[in-house]
Simulated scan of single mutants.
Amino acid sequence: MSDLIAPTFSQNRTNPKPLSSEDTKLMDAAKKLEASFLAEMLKSAGFGKSRENLGGGAGEDQFGSFLVQAQAEAMVEKGGIGLAQSLFEALKESENE
């Protein structure tokens, strides 16, 4: 059952030691990029658009993008789709070359 739990990004999968401060900054940037990507995917899927019946009016239209961004950030914090980890590992690898 533990195999189904999403990985956390506080540690690199290939190297279980804690991240340095530079690596933490790099991971934070990778997480922000993944959240932006997921927010765009959610928008494309129709999230954040006001519903025609029982809609929230102008307020819902104005703040829908904030809701989508918050949902995307929550997805990343719960493990996301692995994009942040992949970006982090690729950037670390290119840094070592």
Score class of each variant (00 low, 15 high):
Ala35Trp: 01
Phe37Thr: 08
Phe37Cys: 01
Leu38Gln: 05
Ala39Arg: 00
Ala39His: 00
Glu40Asn: 13
Met41Ala: 13
Met41Gln: 15
Leu42Tyr: 11
Leu42Met: 11
Leu42Val: 02
Leu42Pro: 00
Lys43Glu: 14
Ser44Cys: 04
Ala45Pro: 00
Ala45Trp: 04
Gly46His: 06
Phe47Ser: 07
Phe47Val: 13
Phe47Asp: 10
Lys49Arg: 15
Ser50Cys: 08
Arg51His: 10
Arg51Tyr: 07
Glu52Phe: 14
Asn53Gly: 12
Leu54Gly: 11
Leu54Cys: 06
Gly56Ala: 09
Gly57Asn: 01
Gly57His: 00
Gly57Met: 01
Ala58Lys: 10
Gly59Tyr: 04
Gly59Pro: 00
Glu60Asp: 10
Glu60Ser: 06
Asp61Ser: 13
Gln62Cys: 06
Phe63Thr: 04
Ser65Lys: 14
Ser65Met: 09
Ser65Val: 13
Phe66Gln: 14
Phe66Trp: 13
Leu67Asp: 08
Gln69Thr: 15
Gln69Asn: 15
Ala70Tyr: 09
Ala70Pro: 03
Gln71Thr: 09
Gln71Glu: 05
Ala72Met: 02
Glu73Lys: 14
Ala74Lys: 12
Ala74Pro: 00
Met75Cys: 07
Val76Pro: 06
Glu77Pro: 04
Glu77Thr: 13
Glu77Asn: 15
Lys78Ile: 00
Lys78Asn: 11
Lys78Ser: 12
Ile81Arg: 09
Ile81Glu: 09
Gly82Thr: 13
Gly82Asn: 11
Leu83Asp: 02
Leu83Pro: 02
Ala84Pro: 08
Gln85Cys: 08
Gln85Trp: 04
Gln85Asp: 10
Gln85Met: 15
Ser86Met: 11
Leu87Tyr: 05
Phe88Lys: 01
Glu89Ile: 09
Ala90Gln: 15
